[in-house]
Amino acid sequence: MTRRGKVFLVDDEPELRRALERLLRAEGLDVVGYGSAAEFLAALSDDDVGCAVLDVAMPGLDGLQLQQRLASSRARLAIVFLTGHGDIPMSVQAVKAGAVDFLTKPVRSADLLRAVHAALEQAGAQQSMAQATAGLRSRYEQLTPREREVFGHVIAGRLNKVIAARLGTSEQTVKVHRGRVMEKLGVGSVADLVRAAQQLGVEPAP
């Protein structure tokens, strides 16, 4: 289980916000409520992780506009929308833009909690994925330029003999470089190596 994120609740209706806060808190979640999009954006920091429960219809910035702003921020938030009346085009737009769920009020607590948990999980997964990528990257940075060259050819699926010919070196030397790369990146197979390259965004050598 990844580290549990916060739930950010944005709704202009104080009574409803209070009720939802109670419900989520009773579930043992860490909840912060905001009365408007602006208030929420002002309080948000880059390393925030969690679930944003947004009311669609709000004075000022509405839920969908807020979603766009959040997409451009560095905080990792999965979004659950709440709306007064189910509006299909709006929900399609919201989900396309990455929302986890689109719920109509009055929402059953089971539905809300399921969506919130899913969102938290998604945010957590993104968070751990990001963390894993960051570790891999620091290891990658320890590779020598020669090792990075060999890495590029390996993930292109070339044999040691071919790589040695390309680099104008011996097959043995390539073998050694290859062993070092796998050691440094902490992978045990070529398949893992390919996945790591994808994660790092390293392109196979031409």
Binding site: E13, E15, L16, A19, L20, R22, L23, R25, A26, E27, A57, G84, H85, K105, P106, V107, R108, S109, L112
Partner: peptide
């Protein structure tokens, strides 16, 4: 409908929160 929905949503969420409590 929204005007009616809103209090219903408040009632529902509050009631379920109370159940959990």
């Amino acid at each position: 409908a929204h005007e009616l929905n809103q209090p219903l949503a408040i009632i529902m969420s509050n009631a379920e929160a109370a159940q959990r409590l």
